[in-house]
Design a protein around this nucleic acid. Structure first.
Lengths: 215, 215
DNA sequence: TCTGCCAGAATCGTATACTATAATAAAGTC
DNA sequence: GACTTTATTATAGTATACGATTCTGGCAGA
């Protein structure tokens, strides 16, 4: 009867929670616990969590699944990939974005800008995520979009590490505003350049604020 | 006792088979059949195959797992990603390659070149795969390496579609020779350029020989 | 001969149960 | 009081079983 399986519903559910930042770095996702909560057996939960792990959104430990804690090196390695992919993806999205999505992006940017005064970290997180998901959703190359999405954990880790620094906060918001302007004008080249600058700014900020160098 | 789980052993086993081209486009991988063959239950086999599917090496159908049959569009989309990533990755590998790996690559290229006369398609396939795995193994950025490896299915599909054309065959071997020269001389910029040319040559050849346009 | 339906078989999704293993807590020793 | 060793327990891994679903092939009727 079910139009989709338990496994897929649970997968969608937890992917959404991860994207919205509802899973903390210390949370442990245990199949039996989730299964009991949902009134199903371990297996569909286990399979959903393993799928998230195979896609990089979680890592399995001997004691439950948790968010990956990326090392300094891994974060820098992924920055290298993002520098290569995201400018091109953003440029392609600039040609494809529709008005409704642009409006949503404008709202996200103004939400984010408002947190410069309010210091509302949660809103800033949500607005950044909304902006990113909006333009990514408009990338016509599905494979490219999915590859970029898989680095969600890195984006969130960087955000977490840099968010509380006022300078970084300001730099990011200026970057978002510049990007929004490029997207709005459907200026492919400007968008490409600005996305590269945006990623590189994030990288430099991260390097400055990074918590030493772990494994 | 087992140093690793059944699941992981089966995963490694079948990933190897896929890489070596031992799984045909019409083969169906059925968990119960493999389980019976190995003397284990369905579950570890099922989980191994699902992991391969989550990583893009297989797709699940209602009747077993099989190789993904990428559409024309998907193949072109992945070419766009490869154009962005592989030149940079090859350039980084050029700095890191050791002598033994270079020797292995030289052997792969000469094996591949020998098939111009012999027409030994299997050897050409194996040699191309060996060359690719060799330089990819030397890419220092692990995340980049893994992302590129995930497009194995596309590489194989393109190889399959272009391999039998004599012109394409020759173009590929010339590209391999040019790449080998770049790698050998540890010439980062030349390697980067040549890898871009190599990928673009494959793309153009594929477009010329491509089997129409399916879904 | 073609088309639609039905029965059977193959395979998937899920449930439950058991074992193995690794983290944690507890107990003992120096 | 710190360090080692031994229970305890939580959780992962695997096995087995069964109902649900979806192909497949044959049969009936047009």
């Amino acid at each position: 009867m079910a139009r989709t399986s338990h496994r897929n519903r649970i997968y969608d559910d937890y992917l959404g929670r991860i994207q919205r930042g509802e899973i903390g770095p210390d949370d442990r996702l245990i199949d039996t616990a989730i299964a009991a909560e949902l009134g199903v057996s371990r297996m569909p939960v286990r399979e959903a969590l393993m799928k998230l792990a195979h896609e990089g959104y979680l890592v399995g430990t001997t004691r439950g699944f948790k968010l990956p804690d990326l090392s300094h090196r891994e974060i820098l390695d992924i920055f290298e990939i993002r520098r290569l992919l995201e400018p091109r993806a953003a440029a392609a999205a600039a040609e494809a974005l529709d008005a409704a999505t642009l409006d949503a992006m404008a709202r996200a940017v103004s939400d984010a800008a408002s947190t410069l005064d309010s210091g509302d970290i949660t809103l800033f997180f949500r607005a950044s995520e909304a902006f990113r998901n909006a333009w990514l959703g408009a990338v016509p190359n599905a494979a490219l979009r999915e590859t970029i999405q898989r680095y969600l954990s890195q984006v969130q880790a960087v955000r977490l590490a840099t968010m509380r620094d006022p300078d970084a906060h300001r730099v990011i918001i200026e970057g978002l505003q510049a990007l929004l302007d490029g997207f709005r004008r459907r200026d492919v080249l400007a968008t490409q350049d600005r996305m590269l600058r945006f990623v590189m700014a994030a990288e430099m900020t991260y390097q400055k604020l990074a918590p030493g160098n772990d494994a």
